[in-house]
Computed example of a mutant assay.
Amino acid sequence: MLSPVTDPDGAPFWEYAARGELRVQVCAGCAEPRFPPRPCCPHCRSFDSDWRPVSGRGRVWSYVVAHPPLLPDYAAQAPYNVVVVELEDLPRIRLVGNLVPAPGAPLNSLPPDGIRIGARVRVVFCDGGLPQWVLA
């Protein structure tokens, strides 16, 4: 499994995820949420930010099923899904992950025909904080 590459702006996301918390960066100046994390608010240009906890509930906004050829570390797990989840609390924020039947399940453990646009999901965490999604 690949490890996330962190930078100063995104590191808090992964620190919270490692504790089992889903948080989104929010501008401390105008309260606009932003993802991916970045140093400056695109709305008011403030450099101040906070990290707001979110419910972890959402819906499948889009998805793809990956087939070989892939990166060598993932080829043995193919075919597997990658979903884009629109957060219930912050509908303009969309996160990418995998839809699995249970936390820590293999990426290829959910048949592709079990995925639907609009399906309700909730976040789960595995492997020290990697966000994944399960059907709600």
Results as ranks from 00 to 15, higher is better:
M1W: 09
P131A: 11
P42E: 08
P103L: 06
A31E: 13
C30I: 14
V124Y: 14
P37M: 11
V123P: 00
W51M: 06
F47H: 06
R23N: 05
P72W: 05
P37A: 14
N81W: 02
L130D: 07
I115H: 01
Y74R: 13
L2V: 02
D127F: 02
A78H: 05
L95E: 01
L87I: 06
E21I: 07
V64N: 08
I117T: 10
L95Y: 01
S49R: 05
V124N: 02
L110N: 00
V84H: 08
R38N: 01
C27R: 00
V65C: 12
V123L: 14
N81I: 02
P106S: 04
V134Y: 01
L95T: 02
N81R: 09
D50P: 03
A136D: 15
R59P: 00
C30M: 13
G58Q: 10
A105Q: 03
R116D: 09
L110F: 08
R23V: 03
G29V: 12
C41R: 00
V26L: 12
A18V: 08
I115P: 00
A18K: 14
R34H: 04
A119R: 13
V5L: 15
N81E: 03
M1T: 05
R120H: 14
P112A: 08
G29F: 09
P111A: 07
G58N: 05
P72M: 15
D48S: 12
L99C: 13
V100P: 00
V26Y: 06
W61C: 08
S49F: 07
I117P: 00
D127A: 14
P4T: 02
S49I: 03
I117S: 01
A78R: 00
Q132G: 03
A105P: 00
Y74V: 13
S55I: 14
V84N: 07
L87A: 09
G56N: 01
N98K: 13
Q25L: 05
R120K: 09
C30L: 09
C44R: 02
R34C: 07
H43R: 09
P12T: 05
E86Q: 12
V85R: 00
D48Y: 06
V54H: 01
W51R: 11
P111Y: 12
P4N: 08
R116C: 11
V84A: 14
E21S: 05
V83I: 13
Y63K: 06
F13L: 09
R59G: 15
E15L: 15
V96P: 08
G129M: 08
V5Y: 12
L71G: 08
